[in-house]
Amino acid sequence: MEELITVKNLSFSYPDGQQALIDVNLAIYRGESLALIGPNGAGKSTLLLHLNGILRSNGAVSLLGSPIDESNLKWARSRVGLVFQNPDDQLFSPTVFDDVAFGPINMGLSDGQVRQAVTRALGLVGMSGYEKRSPHHLSFGEKKRIALATVLSMSPEILVIDEPTSNLDPRGKWSFIGVLERMAGTKIIVTHDLELVGALCRRVVILDQGRVVADGGTGDILADKRLLAAHGLAPDGADLKLKRRG
């Protein structure tokens, strides 16, 4: 299988000295759907920001064989589509059209191509006809879909989605999972929603305290309750006792 993204010995600490990633190694292959899970503060979002070069640590991340650096940032960002957790951060334009068109315009597409890309992306997330709406008139679930469309319009090779189901009610969540399921291509999903992982992903990577602590098939990892509990992804013994008493 072709390796799309290679992360090699990636360590990263924030300016305030907080060590967010320690010696992370990861390979992402074409066509796979990978779940990146871990407790709060594990470094998931930091790792995700490295995947399209918003954060950079001297060539530790390669995209299609070439290390991401200053010179190929634009290319990297059009290939790796990043969907942020809060759609109110992702949608910053006065209309849905402007937001979905933002990426394609920055890529330098012609007017006609931009329009086509917008129509296609909105169609993919089931939001055709919302072009003229303004984001603050939309429901949270609708905003989530539009946020996804703003990235799909760039036709990225890899889709990286941060917490796709957070704050959605079960109906909204499952309909959004449906949208993601229909999406072809390579997907990396950052979450701690294990139902979502089970429904969408073949491979799971667990990140805890900045390190990769597990990497394997979804079935194996989700069945390993002890592993999940050790990294705060399932209730541990004490919690369970409480539950039984209740």
Binding site: I54, R77, G81, F84, N86, D89, Q90, F92, F102
Partner: peptide, 14 residues
Amino acid sequence: RGERVYAAMVARGF
């Protein structure tokens, strides 16, 4: 929020 919005813009080639 400003920083997050900027990241979202940069991620789309701004």
